[in-house]
Simulated scan of single mutants.
Amino acid sequence: MALLEVRGLVKRFGGNTAVDDIGFDLHEGELLALIGPNGAGKSTTFNMVGGQLPATRGSVKLQGTELLGMPSRKIARLGVGRSFQIAATFPSLTVLENVQTALIAHRRKVYSFWRSARDLYVQEARALLQQVGMSEQATRPCKELAYGDVKRVELAMSLAGSPRLLLMDEPTAGMAPAERNALVGLVKKLVRERNMAVLFTEHSMDVVFAYADRVIVLARGQLIAQGSVEEVRRHPKVQEVYFGTGRSFQDANKETLP
């Protein structure tokens, strides 16, 4: 049984159909990329799965539990984590305090003036920072970090709820190529270690083809292809959507070589 089952997902805005009858599965231990050109319906699909946007019709089930209609906070309690295009950290707090804040929120801990929040979940926060390679910068304010390191802190925060499913919206946006590969390589390592599933949107085809286990492709609100990286890379409809007729991802890669 798949961890996540999406069936017949539809979203209409007035007379415009932004997503039209999309369905796919996502399994534990799998990194699934959701790609497509601008206006394909990626963000709309992504936000319906995460509960930020209501669906017009369809079904999104997490191990048999229907998520459509649930508020996003309740979906998070079921084991669904989320990261965003723009890193959602607290710049004035230290790296450690950011992760502690996420742990406090996920565990719904109420603390009093007699016990500082700084005393809560210190070891758990340090363990998460160790996993994302940020333990040595635990005492630095987030505002002092390079953007790639901020994204690592956000990743640690998204792991605070021990998610079974992690939704990552454009995780490498604004990052240099080396930073992109380092971050998604780390995510793939965590997917294997934690046996969780990740659904991510991404514009960098280099990242998608290097790290995704499977790929689903949208165009004009419809699912036009899904399968392994090689199956999608060679799919004529995908090549047409991205490049028009007569070109391929292989041709585009050759053109970028010195």
Rank of each mutant, 00 (worst) to 15 (best):
N98K: 14
K61D: 06
Y111V: 05
K189D: 15
V80F: 10
E124V: 03
A2R: 12
R82T: 08
Y211M: 10
E30S: 05
V208A: 01
K11C: 01
R180M: 14
L167Q: 01
T17I: 11
V95N: 06
R233P: 00
T139F: 05
L145W: 09
F84E: 04
V187H: 00
V184R: 03
P91N: 12
L120C: 01
N16Y: 10
R73H: 15
L165H: 01
L78A: 13
R194F: 05
V241E: 13
L9P: 02
R194P: 04
E66H: 08
E154A: 12
V60Q: 08
K11W: 09
A88H: 15
F46W: 10
P163F: 12
S135P: 00
H106V: 15
K143C: 06
T245G: 15
G36A: 08
L34H: 03
R214D: 01
G133K: 07
L31K: 07
R73K: 14
V19K: 00
F13Y: 13
L218R: 01
G81Q: 14
G246F: 13
D149R: 13
P236T: 04
P236L: 06
G174W: 07
G148Y: 00
F84V: 06
L96S: 12
L166A: 02
V132S: 08
N181Q: 04
Y211H: 15
R247K: 15
T256D: 06
V153E: 04
M168Q: 05
I104T: 04
F243G: 04
E66W: 03
